[in-house]
């Protein structure tokens, strides 16, 4: 009897049809392909993308980001000492995004939250000089035009409750 049932299983291949049902199920499922230039991925908050600097927040004399950067790709030029008493904003701020590792150490070390990752991830350029960010190109207003930029609002408690944020709100 067992031999007969084994033979029937051998000639009717029930397992094969189970497999085909599985692939048929996948055939009608939603596809996971993202067609990149047409559909852009919505990246999660805290994506470690291209760096940006809020020049108005930067106090420039600490130069923490410059010291902590493992690649040495950040260069901050603080104002002369007499000016710094009233206006601490940097005279010039360079980030070489070509060498940037997106490690986030500058972001962690910044005492005023001036330097941040954005969710811009398209770093392919024709000329490397395009990746050299300076005072003009680093502020996130430049990036905001093209990208969704709302993660500051969604970052949890710590930065939201920081005095700087309060100050911004009061203005």
């Amino acid at each position: 009897m067992e031999a007969i049932s084994k033979f029937i299983r051998m000639i009717t291949f029930p397992e094969l049809f189970k497999g085909m049902a599985v692939t048929a199920k996948y055939f009608f499922q939603r596809k996971v392909t993202e067609q990149y230039p047409d559909q852009k991925t919505i990246l999660p908050y805290r994506t470690k993308g291209k760096l940006h600097v809020d020049i108005d927040k930067c106090i420039s004399l600490c130069r923490f980001c410059e010291k902590v950067c493992p690649e040495g790709c950040i260069k901050v030029f603080p104002p002369p000492k007499e000016l710094a008493k009233t206006d601490k904003r940097p005279v010039e701020f360079y980030i070489n995004q070509e060498h940037c590792l997106h490690c986030g150490m500058c972001v962690d070390s910044c005492s005023t939250g001036a330097i941040h990752h954005s969710d811009e991830y398209e770093l392919v350029v024709i000329d490397f000089k395009e990746l050299l960010g300076d005072k003009e190109t680093l502020p996130y207003d430049m990036i905001k035009k093209h990208y969704r930029w709302n993660y500051l609002e969604n970052v949890p408690v710590k930065i939201k409750d920081s005095p700087l944020k309060e100050e911004e709100k009061s203005q």
Partner: peptide, 10 residues
């Protein structure tokens, strides 16, 4: 194309 569909691709 059909192999793509069967593998959740396009």
């Amino acid at each position: 194309r059909l192999l793509g569909f069967y593998q959740s691709r396009l």
